[in-house]
């Protein structure tokens, strides 16, 4: 098997006195799709945000493609990398957010092009054609000249996904990408994510869409109070939960 795309070893994260991640271990290989489920406050979004260092972590290792994210060891001491290094590392992963976070003063096209030009150092023409390709993939090419404010939530999210994925990341992070959407817009976004999974994109997602997690994932992780409560293939996890907590959680989220 190839070396892991993501390797998390004994990850700890605190917000002041509150420990929100209490020793997480996770290994993902090329093409894996891992869904994090669990009640709010269980640490799933924090875990996701540690992978691209939107949250700092105190202990343990997060490594993408064999490279530890955010920190290095110098004379046995843990030191934070320079901002420039961290920026470079962040571009190894792509992220889609719950609230899309498109840049409102740029068209869909420019939203996708910005990272390509500034981070990937592409020429404008090249960035333009890469952006075009991905906007087409998410079905947004026709609206490339629209501003975020002129797009529906679902459309914005598809552009946001194109913006992340056009950077050609080794790993995509999805943070509750449908939670802020009206119910009728959820499917257009989920089908984009499904397509990416089918193409072999390595993805780590936080989701409340249990059916979707079941269908799309190679592995599902149930987060419980900062720990991995239970993990395994989706069928096993959803059909035969071992713990009371997971059973109760699934019942409350009405997975059928």
């Amino acid at each position: 098997m190839s070396s892991p795309v993501l390797e998390i070893v004994d990850l700890h994260k605190r917000f002041g006195a509150l420990e929100v991640l209490k020793g997480i271990n996770l290994t993902m290989h090329q093409g894996d799709v891992v869904s994090l489920i669990g009640s709010s406050g269980s640490g799933k979004t924090t875990l996701l945000r540690c992978v691209n260092l939107l949250e700092e972590y105190e202990d343990g290792v997060v490594a993408v493609a064999g490279e530890q994210i955010g920190y290095t060891k110098k004379n046995g001491k843990r030191v934070r990398l320079s901002e420039r290094e961290i920026a470079r590392q962040r571009a190894m992963t792509g992220m889609a957010f719950q609230h899309f976070n498109l840049f409102p003063h740029m068209t869909a096209m420019h939203n996708v092009m910005l990272g390509l030009i500034k981070t990937r150092r592409m020429k404008k023409d090249e960035a333009h054609s890469v952006a075009e390709k991905w906007l087409e993939r998410v079905g947004m090419l026709a609206r490339r000249d629209h501003y975020p404010g002129q797009l529906s939530g679902g459309q914005q999210q598809r552009v946001a996904i194109a913006r992340a994925i056009a950077m050609n990341p080794q790993l995509m992070l999805f943070d509750e990408v449908t939670s802020a959407l009206d119910p009728e817009l959820v499917n257009e976004v989920l089908s984009v994510v499904r397509d990416l999974a089918k193409d072999g994109m390595t993805m780590l997602l936080v989701t409340h869409e249990m059916q979707f997690a079941h269908d799309v994932s190679s592995k599902v992780i149930f987060m419980d109070d900062g720990r991995i409560g239970e993990e395994g293939p989706p069928d096993q996890l959803f059909r035969q939960p071992k713990s009371e907590r997971l059973a109760a959680f699934l019942k409350s989220s009405k997975f059928s």
Partner: peptide, 18 residues
């Protein structure tokens, strides 16, 4: 400006300056 703007910029590898 919502913090999500900075986070989105970080997530595509932009430096603070950019």
């Amino acid at each position: 400006i919502p913090p999500g703007q900075t986070e989105a910029a970080k997530s595509i590898g932009l430096t603070f300056r950019t």
